[in-house]
């Protein structure tokens, strides 16, 4: 692959410009957050005295500690269960291939492109009848169901590549189906599982529609839902809103920067398969 030096420079310049455009909103958010609370700073301008206190104020106003805890609880409710049941299904459909499995799989595929808005209305009444509105369950339970098409699809794609020999061998060693699944296949599936875990974590953390419709108390919501509520309440105070938004973004950003390789490859693979 020979690329001329001029092309290389063009590429570099373009890349730097695009990075600048990507980062600019974050910078703008940060700088604005330092202006005195209640003012309307014009564009990108460094304040005369940076008001770092906006962050502590926003931390208190948003009740950040409890918000984080709520999102963590939702993640704990959604991700492990989704991983387990989708892996079981993916294992069955991709590896054991039972009669009727193909029809089931096509059934799951149908849900792959479903816009959440399509079913939000019945979900609301369903949750109301179950008495779960305004609880985290109203987000957790539907999310598990909504993740099934993708998660089953993903795990099936993984198990379809696993050679049959491994299972046959284990069977002859006297392993029953559950042992075969749990002792042999799940450990071998760790890379696929961890990527899926990252995707489900991120999607749950950023889920907005379900939170807005089904849960009115921000302290029972996901992070994105809480951010929406924070905007609804403090949208009139720009610096405080910016400070709060940054605080709410921080956990995701930190986790992303720590696990960035994993994230990028999970998301890329995720969309390639999806």
């Amino acid at each position: 692959m020979i690329v001329s030096r001029r092309e290389q420079w063009l590429g570099r310049v373009l890349l730097v410009i695009l990075m600048a455009v990507t980062v600019l909103p974050f910078v703008s958010l940060f700088v604005t957050a330092l202006h005195p609370s209640g003012t309307y700073p014009a564009g990108l301008s460094w304040p005369a005295t940076p008001h770092w206190s906006n962050f502590t104020e926003a931390f208190k106003a948003a009740d950040m500690g409890r918000l984080l805890w709520s999102s963590v609880l939702i993640e704990v409710g959604v991700v492990p269960v989704s991983l387990l049941i989708s892996t079981m299904a993916g294992f069955a459909l991709g590896h054991l291939r039972p009669p009727g499995g193909r029809a089931l799989f096509i059934g799951f595929l149908l849900g792959l492109t479903l816009p959440f808005e399509g079913i939000i209305i019945p979900l609301y009444y369903q949750m109301r009848d179950l008495g779960l509105l305004n609880t985290r369950w109203a987000i957790i339970l539907p999310l598990i169901g909504l993740y099934m098409p993708f998660a089953v699809f993903w795990m099936r794609a993984h198990f379809i590549t696993m050679p049959d020999d491994i299972s046959e061998a284990a069977r002859i060693d006297g392993a029953n189906l559950w042992q075969l699944f749990w002792r042999i296949h799940v450990p071998l599936s760790m890379p696929a599982l961890s990527s899926l875990a990252i995707l489900l974590f991120l999607w749950s953390w950023n889920q907005f529609l379900l939170a807005v419709v089904l849960v009115s108390d921000p302290l029972q919501r996901t992070m994105a839902g809480a951010l929406g509520a924070f905007q609804g309440q403090w949208g009139t105070d720009i610096p405080l809103l910016c400070a709060g938004s940054l605080l709410i973004l921080t956990p995701t950003l930190v986790i992303f920067l720590v696990f960035q390789r994993r994230f990028v490859s999970a998301l890329l693979q995720g969309s390639l398969k999806g």
């Binding site: 049941i85 054991l96 291939r97 089931l104 209305i121 019945p122 169901g145 098409p149 699944f181």
Partner: peptide, 30 residues
């Protein structure tokens, strides 16, 4: 084995039917 395998898919199918398929049908009905 086929029966057992289908049983493995049951939890996923259940979650999917209750929280996706049924709501889709309800949306159509509404």
């Amino acid at each position: 084995r086929g029966g057992l395998a289908l049983a493995l898919t049951a939890p996923a199918v259940l979650a999917y039917v209750v929280f996706v398929i049924r709501p889709i049908a309800m949306t159509v009905q509404y």
